[in-house]
Design a protein around this nucleic acid. Sequence first.
DNA 1: TTTTATTAATTGAACGTTCAATTAACAATA
DNA 2: TATTGTTAATTGAACGTTCAATTAATAAAA
Lengths: 197, 197
Amino acid sequence: MPKVGMKDTRRQQLIDATMESIAELGMQNTTIVSISKRAGMSSGIISHYFGGKQGLIEAALRHLLDQLGRELLERMAKTDGSPEQRLDCIIESNFSEFQRSALAAKTWLSFWSRAMHEPGLHRLQQINNARLYSNLRYSFAQVLPANEATEAARQTAALIDGFWLRSALSADPSEHFEAGERLCKKFVHETLAQARA
Amino acid sequence: MPKVGMKDTRRQQLIDATMESIAELGMQNTTIVSISKRAGMSSGIISHYFGGKQGLIEAALRHLLDQLGRELLERMAKTDGSPEQRLDCIIESNFSEFQRSALAAKTWLSFWSRAMHEPGLHRLQQINNARLYSNLRYSFAQVLPANEATEAARQTAALIDGFWLRSALSADPSEHFEAGERLCKKFVHETLAQARA
DNA sequence: TTTTATTAATTGAACGTTCAATTAACAATA
DNA sequence: TATTGTTAATTGAACGTTCAATTAATAAAA
């Protein structure tokens, strides 16, 4: 059965299976059996590749964060540097196709909840929060005075997370995501427009 | 040891202990033992009063929701009926002293996460969401045209949930809560001011 | 005495981890 | 080319732990 050089493939398959299991069953009911079954492997392989269940959970969150980061870089590269466009980019990458899938959203919310009581996850979570905030603040600060930029960035960050949360909990996440993205942009544009007036 | 008429007292003590345990240990690590120990009782009492752990969890969420609802009614009674003041009331009750405690916030987020996969909790969650949204929409609609009121209500609801979420996850929840309340009100007031202009 | 309230002990299922055994691919040897 | 030795990949049963639920026993109140 074994082929050499399967390490990266297997790790990715297990991470995918982890997110599927969390999205379907919730973190509460996700076990190493529910994960390994979905990946078509045995339960022991998880400890072999990730040192244990906890290691796999953290690797899965790291994967989500990486994907979000890469998404943002890609979109940023395609625009000129105007604050308006950069802010749109940030919003879009947070609501992008990848995020839009109910699978990722549910997984993310499960991580959020557990992050409150598990330092490893909490650290990753805080890094992500800080990155979103500082990206927003940087662009606002090119148009608004310092303290107003701070407030606008906080509001926008909360708006994004809030729409996300409500979408993940709603019966029809994708519809909610679309409305959320639109209304986040609306807020940003009106905030900028008011500054110019 | 047993006294008659202890039912309501014991039930409330167990609900309080449940929220303490969830806030301290997380839902993951909250067991009937961790709850009953905090309440100074034996583990069997939970099944006796709530039919089991799940029944207690749902009762605790119901208690949080009731408290939020009562908080809102109280504040509403103290104001005139202007849309501006009513909106402030809604925001204040969502950020009130009770909510501000890290204990409630963490408990709430744990519930949110589990609500995705447990129909009983999900139902309670949706009722709460709908109530917040319709309260907001009603007040906005007295000043704004229908579709703008809808959008403003959605944005405000997302803002509240977003600040909440970020506060619960932050190192210093109470400071975040304060800033959140202020920035939610700022959004509402500027939205109303723009409509009048 | 009967009922209500409560406890302490017990049970059985479910879970994560570990590890000896197995398999397949590869490399060296003849 | 065929044989053999080596290693990476993978399995799944066994183990110890933890948990929710149940049970039987106990104590106070009516």
